[in-house]
Computed example of a mutant assay.
Amino acid sequence: MFSHDGSQAAHCVLAQNPENIELARFYCFTQKTISKRLVLRQDPSVKRTVCKKCCALLIPGVTSTVRQKRGPRRQRKTIVRCLSCGLTKRFPNNPKHKLWVDQPEAQLENQTSRDAGPSSKSTTQEEKNDIGSMSTIAKTSSTAQTNLIKPS
């Protein structure tokens, strides 16, 4: 998948020299803008490693801090704080929690095809009249076009 390329380059840059935060940020920003232009969805694992505000790569202990916190009703949360801009992200730490991408309903092959068209039995009389009037309009417009094309 394309969406990992920018973060992989940013990881390589920071692995070689941890002070190259600006170059890693540039790679993450470029990845984000290209995926927006091509209307691609980034994988949630990639989105969680990039700061939404400053596009910095979030590496625990280097560019971010990670804390575990208990919220109301004993729900645990993972809190990731960007050291560049201070933005915090909160993620539920529920083992039963599944992302939408990981659920079977999200997969394209598991969805029923609703666009196949209505069956002849379920078509109402109104829909039949609409379809009939559309075909009549199409016939008259094609006849009018051929009359315009014919030499007189």
Rank of each mutant, 00 (worst) to 15 (best):
S142A: 10
L148F: 06
A138T: 13
C82W: 02
A24M: 01
H97S: 06
K96E: 12
L14T: 04
G6S: 09
P60F: 01
P104E: 06
S7M: 11
L57E: 05
T63V: 03
V101E: 11
T78Y: 03
M134E: 06
R90M: 13
I149E: 14
Q145R: 15
T33A: 01
H4Q: 14
T33M: 06
L87G: 00
M1W: 03
Q8T: 12
R41H: 06
N129I: 14
T140F: 09
R90W: 10
K89Q: 10
D43Q: 07
N129E: 15
M1R: 09
R90C: 10
I79L: 02
R81C: 13
E126L: 14
Q145T: 12
A56W: 12
S135L: 13
I131T: 14
T140Q: 13
Q16W: 02
P151N: 06
S141K: 12
P118M: 08
K96T: 12
L40C: 08
E126Y: 13
C12I: 09
Q42G: 00
S84L: 10
L83S: 09
P92R: 02
E22L: 11
T136L: 09
T65S: 15
T30H: 10
T146Q: 11
G86E: 02
D5N: 07
N93F: 13
D130N: 13
I149S: 09
